[in-house]
Amino acid sequence: MNKKILAIGVAAALSVTAVGMMAGCGPTGSGEAETAMDIVAAVAREAGSGTRGAFDELVANAEGNTIDDALEGGALASVVSEESSTAAVITNVARSYGILGYASLGSYLENTDTVQAVNVNGVEATRENILSGDYELSRPFMLCYQNYDELSDLAKNLISFIESTEGQAIVGEDYINLPEVEDAAGEYTPYTGSETTLTITGSTSVEPLMQDLVAAFEAANPGNNFTVTITGSGSGAGIADAQEGRNDIGMSSRALTDEEKETLTEHQIATDGIAVIVKLGSELTNVTFDQLYNLYINGTPIVVGEED
């Protein structure tokens, strides 16, 4: 028996050293697979997510029915899994060439080492194409608050920063500026007011952009004595917080509903594309709305190499 234990111990020690040598950063790659594999499975976001809402509303089949229409009384195909975060979508897509998913364009651009975007209806997901409307998968990034006049000076100053030349440059790095705001953008006047705290809560999709903006905002106010807190709790939570006065500004990755607009003002700060992504190296280059609809609703595989 002792010999057995010894054997187990030796085997364990060997594997420790063997794998220890390969230590690196990031997840280890899964096995190689065919890059021309058909797309047979898909990843969706959970109901209520801003990304999912925009995707379901926009993607329609040849007859003009959207995924939203199909879901009323129906359900997604059984080959579709739901994930609660962009990271989970990207990690899952990166597992196999047979899986397709969608994610915020900004998040995708940070993960081009594992996944790649495909053209949608023959159009590439670029800034120009989204602005011109040729690339059809996009959604607004919104701020929301009860009333602009009642905002604190600090909040107003942050918004003026976002809409200044400097702020618009940051928006333009990963997301798409609103042309009218970008054209009117000018010099930013540093904050001189007396408020010291600003709480921002809401959409996890808007959160990374807001973090970059606030970091630059703080840098633009050297020697500042204010603190800005950003919490990514989801669009719904951000809107509810704004309604009940638990934050100064709410973030939403979807337009507000008419009911929400009764109590809140929405303020668009950027447009975000939704990238359709597959594992890096896949030979799939283009998908049509009809193919996406059929994959997500009927589970019909997308055959790679047949696209036009």
Binding site: E46, A47, G48, S49, G50, S78, V80, S81, E82, S84, T204, G232, S233, G234, S235, G236, A237, I239, A240
Partner: peptide, 23 residues
Amino acid sequence: FSFIRTLTTNIVMEMGYATNIHR
């Protein structure tokens, strides 16, 4: 190996986006 969801994950997945009756 069919996709499933449990009670706990239902809460974690949707709590951030939920309002009113959904919440």
